[in-house]
């Protein structure tokens, strides 16, 4: 049984992730590729360092896959996130989703990346010419008064 949800330190093969969701019932495979951006609000990034709570991150990626299957039946999802030091334009995450019809593949793919930013314990540290900082999307977007992230609507 191949692993649909992985954390890796190596470069990600897009083709390999797509292969995992290929299926005779699929009429569409949508891929999302997250890459390292050089400029954020005018600030120049030199490189990024990603860190993960690996065992829990894999579980949370699998949870996202389960949530997707409930919301969009007959969907197959595979997600690999890379950690370690990444240069500009390198691939940080690949999400592949196959569905019977194309519309669901776009929606499920979008759902996966948004959920990654909410519940998967992975952290990004931006390194600039003049400094460095741990980033946190929760800070920018959502507060968690209870200490727990929002549940996927089940």
């Amino acid at each position: 049984m191949e692993n649909l949800y992985e954390i890796t330190r190596d470069p990600i093969s897009i083709e390999a992730i797509v292969k995992k969701v290929e299926h005779p019932h699929a009429g569409a495979i949508n891929t999302f590729i997250g890459t390292v951006r050089e400029l954020t609000h005018g600030k120049r990034t030199i490189y990024l360092a990603y860190e993960a709570y690996e065992s829990m991150a894999v579980k949370k990626l699998a949870q996202i896959g389960e949530e997707i299957k409930k919301k969009w039946p007959d969907t197959r999802a595979a997600i690999t996130h890379r950690i370690g030091q990444l240069k500009i334009s390198e691939i940080a995450v690949v999400i592949a989703v196959s569905t019977p019809h194309r519309n669901d593949s776009y929606e499920a793919s979008r759902y996966a990346i948004e959920r990654i930013k909410e519940i998967v314990p992975i952290w990004k540290k931006e390194h600039w010419e003049d400094g460095e900082k741990w980033m946190g999307d929760q800070l920018e977007k959502v507060a968690y008064p209870t200490g727990k992230p929002p549940k996927g609507d089940e």
Binding site: Y53, W123, D137, L139, G147
Partner: peptide, 24 residues
């Protein structure tokens, strides 16, 4: 697994503080 504050801990539990995440 994410937990509420009321949970009582027992010997051998592994807890983790998860700062704001920023994967993707």
């Amino acid at each position: 697994e994410y937990a509420e504050g009321t949970e009582v801990l027992k010997d051998g539990d592994v807890i983790a503080f998860i700062p704001p995440v920023s994967g993707g």
